[in-house]
Design a protein around this nucleic acid. Structure first.
Lengths: 150, 150
DNA sequence: ATGCAACTTCAAGTCCACTTGAAGTAAAGC
DNA sequence: GCTTTACTTCAAGTGGACTTGAAGTTGCAT
């Protein structure tokens, strides 16, 4: 198979590490686009590899496909995205990414403090107990809660 | 309401920032336990607040409820967890947490490199293109893929 | 020209983590 | 005692992100 300019779903799937069904699914959601051959088969420009990588990356930061599409739709209809477009999108995601990293780092620190203390069994873990007395009005150990599971 | 030794589902839910339905769900999965009143209502010891916090924390690192239960079940039947038990569990999670943080940090670095380069539109982003020529055998920009969305 | 893998659509199915609803019971305040 | 709010169970529903299956079509290699 001569490497042609365009990729079939199968090829794209292989390159991106996803199933073809996922690619069709993304397409149905408008996240990616394809051209069609005379026989109605999909053909993707190579740039779609990057696009899919970006989608997967965004997912791993905790964005839903809807949010991703939303962010991408900043790019005006049928226009090739400019540096500015992409910069707007990526810096938005960058913020989410930072939040997420910070949350996980805080969690890690808490966990480190905890590893030796037997929290689960005991009365006196400062970390998990923090605020337990103070907040009688529905608070709980917020510092471990918040940032719901992605 | 005098703060008694035990909490109702409602109280626990308020303290933990989850819905009562979630708590019943966790209980049905064996993640938490309760005593019952004469009238069959649940009563939780205060320590369950911590337990739920731990569950939520573990979720946010990307563990499924099954994995969490699995990890927790290291603790022998009906025994109060010892420091050693908890230490085993938490250091296991700590590893996952580290992986996750590392992955996100790498992603952040890539993104930073990218913000100015107009990747999406262009031919020549070293980051997203890396390996595009080399790996003709189903590779793709792995450094952005792997670590599936949590 | 033919065979077979890879493609097509569309509907339905799956998994996870819950949430909702219905019908009934318990507990706390007045 | 009565009312209201919080609880009980159980079955079914939801949403996100896909996956699977069936039935049919295309495209490349020999």
């Amino acid at each position: 198979m001569a490497q042609s300019e365009f990729l079939t779903v199968g090829q794209l799937a292989a390159r991106c590490g996803v199933r073809t069904s996922a690619l069709r699914f993304y397409e149905s959601k408008g996240l990616i686009e394809s051209m069609r051959t005379g026989g109605n088969q999909r053909r993707y420009p190579r740039s779609t590899i990057r696009l899919v990588a970006v989608i997967r990356a965004a997912q791993s930061v905790g964005l839903s496909l809807d949010e991703i599409q939303d962010a991408m739709s900043v790019i005006p209809e049928g226009r090739t995205p400019t540096k500015k477009d992409w910069s707007r999108i990526s810096s938005r995601w960058r913020a989410r990414l930072d939040e997420r990293i910070q949350f996980l780092e805080r969690l890690r620190d808490d966990l480190d403090q905890c590893i030796g203390c037997g929290c689960l069994s005991l009365q006196s873990c400062n970390l998990l107990n923090r605020g337990d007395k103070a907040a009688e009005r529905g608070a709980g150990p917020r510092h471990l809660i918040e940032g719901k599971p992605s």
